[in-house]
């Protein structure tokens, strides 16, 4: 039954033309909506995979909490210190956890590139970049949703959520924008997990500075401070555009 189905499918096609059956034309794939559809299909697939195992999220979240706890011992956190140290601790926890997660996504189960499955498909490489970026932002975001309340409790810091959300979102996008590119870069090398943090930390310095400062300003407002949230947004735009363009060069073989 299925066999006749298949035969019909193949014979129906005019074999003198190179055009796969039931496949949308070239024009449709080039449009923005096709772009968004493909990105969302990949994101949905990654989320579904991750929801099945929850390996990456749980490890990332646990690690972020551990960093928060360990730093509590490492620093002398008397009340007057907390405001100065806590934002830094929060972002170090986020960045460490992010790198853990990014490393996991490139830790190839296979010898060949972990992205080959997607690279075989007729999808623009920028689609792959944005899909992986959104996936990483969501992964890190979930960790942050877990970590922020616990941070507020154990560091006894009043967190103004309204102000913190944009800072965390922008900071996370910055980390993920660079991280997605560098994860793909590290995947080209023999020592992926080793190289990723070494390459990524120096480049994340501007994002970390801006995010920490913006978070500090939420706890103890500073007069005449730089517009950190705006800067963070500007850094995001710069890193996003460079990474989106560069991604193609990194994944091709």
């Amino acid at each position: 039954m299925s066999d006749t189905n298949m035969t019909r499918m193949t014979t129906r096609v005019n074999t003198t033309e190179i055009s796969p059956p039931g496949v949308g034309g070239d024009g449709a794939l080039g449009t923005a909506s096709a772009f968004a559809r493909q990105v969302m299909a990949i994101v949905a697939k990654d989320l579904r995979s991750e929801l099945r195992t929850k390996q990456t999220w749980s490890a990332m979240a646990l690690f972020a909490l551990l960093v928060l706890v360990v730093f509590n011992f490492a620093f002398d956190l008397r009340v007057e210190n907390t405001a100065a140290v806590a934002p830094g601790v929060l972002w170090v926890a986020f960045v460490f956890a992010s790198i853990l997660g990014l490393g996991r996504t490139v830790a190839a189960e296979h010898d060949q590139g972990p992205l080959d499955r997607l690279l075989l498909c007729p999808v623009n490489r920028t689609v792959v970049y944005f899909a992986k970026l959104i996936g990483n932002v969501l992964f890190i975001g979930v960790v942050e949703v877990v970590a922020v309340p616990i941070f507020a409790i154990i560091y006894n810091v009043p967190v103004a959520l309204g102000g913190l959300v944009p800072v965390v979102v922008l900071g996370t996008i910055g980390v993920a924008a660079v991280g997605t590119l560098f994860a793909a870069m590290a995947a080209n090398t023999r020592a992926r997990e080793l190289l990723l943090p070494v390459l990524i930390f120096p480049l994340l310095v501007p994002v970390v500075i801006a995010a920490v400062r913006a978070t500090s300003a939420l706890i103890v407002p500073v007069a005449r401070d730089a517009p950190w949230v705006g800067l963070l947004a500007a850094f995001d735009v710069i890193f996003l555009s460079i990474s989106a363009v560069a991604f193609e060069y990194v994944v091709e073989d």
């Binding site: 796969p20 039931g22 496949v23 449709a28 493909q38 299909a41 498909c121 007729p122």
Partner: peptide, 10 residues
């Protein structure tokens, strides 16, 4: 998923 990636209609 792969059918969608290849733009297969159904």
């Amino acid at each position: 998923f792969f059918a969608r990636m290849y733009g297969v209609r159904d």
